[in-house]
Simulated assay, not measured.
Amino acid sequence: MNLPKVVADLVLAQNNFDSVGYATCFSETAVVFDEGKTHNGRKEIAHWIADANERYKATMKPISFEENETESLLKVEVSGDFDGSPVVLSYHLEIADEWIQSLKITG
């Protein structure tokens, strides 16, 4: 599967539980929506993913990737320490200037 570099970097960082590397895939003003919460900016995103890594130990296996003019959709199989693992999640991404501007994770 041919992923944009920033998306491939995001998956690699997640699978290595590298919260700092994960957060650096986002712009300084990026927004993440996950589990009913909004995380604004790279610092909040770094705290959110560090906490999620500690709680869930989740790894990602890309299943499909689609791009259009306004949004990219990455479907991943996520495995970890949570009920129902593994689960397929959709990562709705807005990418600009080689940075993730927004991410919304849905089931």
Results as ranks from 00 to 15, higher is better:
Met1Asn: 08
Met1Tyr: 04
Asn2Ile: 06
Leu3Pro: 02
Lys5Phe: 00
Val6Thr: 12
Val7Gly: 05
Val7Ala: 10
Val7Ile: 11
Ala8Asp: 06
Asp9Pro: 05
Val11Glu: 00
Asn15Lys: 09
Ser19Pro: 00
Gly21Phe: 11
Tyr22Gln: 02
Ala23Gln: 10
Cys25His: 03
Cys25Thr: 15
Glu28Ser: 15
Val31Gln: 06
Val32Glu: 01
Glu35Asp: 10
Glu35Asn: 11
Lys37Val: 07
Gly41Lys: 07
Arg42Glu: 04
Lys43Arg: 11
Lys43Met: 09
Ile45Val: 04
His47Glu: 14
His47Val: 07
His47Ser: 14
Ala50Lys: 14
Asp51Phe: 07
Asp51Ile: 06
Ala52Gln: 06
Asn53Lys: 00
Glu54Gly: 09
Lys57Arg: 12
Thr59Leu: 03
Thr59Glu: 04
Thr59Gly: 11
Met60Gln: 14
Ile63Met: 10
Asn68Leu: 05
Glu69Arg: 04
Ser72Ile: 05
Leu73Asn: 05
Leu74Asp: 12
Lys75Ala: 05
Lys75Asn: 03
Val78Pro: 04
Gly84Leu: 08
Leu89Thr: 04
Leu89Gly: 00
Leu89His: 07
Ser90Asp: 14
Ser90Arg: 13
His92Tyr: 03
Leu93Val: 03
Ile95Asn: 00
Ile95Thr: 01
Asp97Lys: 14
Trp99Gly: 00
Gln101Ile: 08
Ile105Gly: 05
Thr106Ile: 14
Gly107Trp: 09
Gly107Phe: 14
Gly107Tyr: 13
Gly107Val: 08
